[in-house]
Simulated scan of single mutants.
Amino acid sequence: MSRWVDRLIPADGEGPGAIEAGVPEFIDSQMNTPYGYGALWYMHGPFVGGPATLGYQLEFSPRALYRSALAGLEEQVCKRFSKRFDELDASTRDSVIGELESGKLGIGDVPAVDFFTQVLQNTHEGYFCDPKHGGNRDMAAWKMINFPGARADYIDWVEQYGKRYPLAPVPSA
């Protein structure tokens, strides 16, 4: 998973990448929560394809989606490149991810676009979440965007556009 999220949010001069922010650990930990098991979702059929405006319509919990899609991805990558995804160079990984995003790479039971969307969503969540959830290590993403975090009061700064908030971010308890 780390080679995936590294390509979605790479480290650069603006701030840390997904690896430095702990996104892989965030995603792994989320898969062992009620969210990962789909415990809070309606997970009974019928499962019928529909427009994206209807939201998630698959029979897989996030955990099952990852397991199935990652296995299918590895199988396809090994067939095409005789290497695992993690062993591919960055350019080839980007190409494979692009094929998933556009739905051009079949990975088994999980539609490639839905898998890409799930990984991208979870990567964003892990990058910008409150650190208590296991991502955004050291509040690195919050510092990068100058987000105050869980401060009780910063209303005086809300409409001061272009000014940098002077205090460091604060995580929730």
Rank of each mutant, 00 (worst) to 15 (best):
S61A: 09
P34A: 01
G106V: 07
R63H: 07
E14Q: 12
D114M: 09
G106D: 14
C78I: 14
T53N: 07
D28N: 06
R93Y: 10
F115W: 11
G38V: 04
F47H: 08
Y37I: 00
L73M: 15
G22V: 07
V113M: 13
T33Q: 10
L100H: 11
E20Q: 13
G13L: 11
A39L: 11
R7F: 01
S91Q: 11
A64D: 14
E14M: 12
P51G: 11
H44D: 07
F85T: 00
W41V: 11
L88T: 05
E20Y: 04
Y66C: 08
G38C: 06
Y66I: 05
Y42M: 12
F60A: 01
F26H: 02
H44Q: 06
M43Q: 13
E25R: 12
L105V: 02
Q30K: 07
A52V: 09
T117H: 11
P34Y: 04
F60P: 01
R67Q: 13
R67M: 08
G108R: 04
D109F: 02
A21N: 01
A71D: 10
T92N: 06
L54V: 00
A69H: 01
L88Y: 14
L105S: 02
D109L: 07
P24T: 03
R93S: 05
F115L: 06
A52T: 05
L70K: 01
D12R: 04
G55M: 01
L54C: 06
L73D: 09
S61Y: 04
I97Y: 02
P10G: 08
L88K: 05
L65S: 00
P34Q: 03
D94F: 05
V48D: 11
G49I: 08
L88Q: 09
K83A: 06
A52K: 07
G45L: 09
R84N: 13
G36Q: 11
G106F: 10
P10V: 14
E25D: 15
I9A: 02
G15Q: 06
R67E: 14
S91C: 10
M43E: 11
K104W: 10
I19F: 03
G50E: 06
R63D: 08
V48S: 11
I9Y: 04
Q76V: 09
F116H: 14
R80Y: 08
F26V: 01
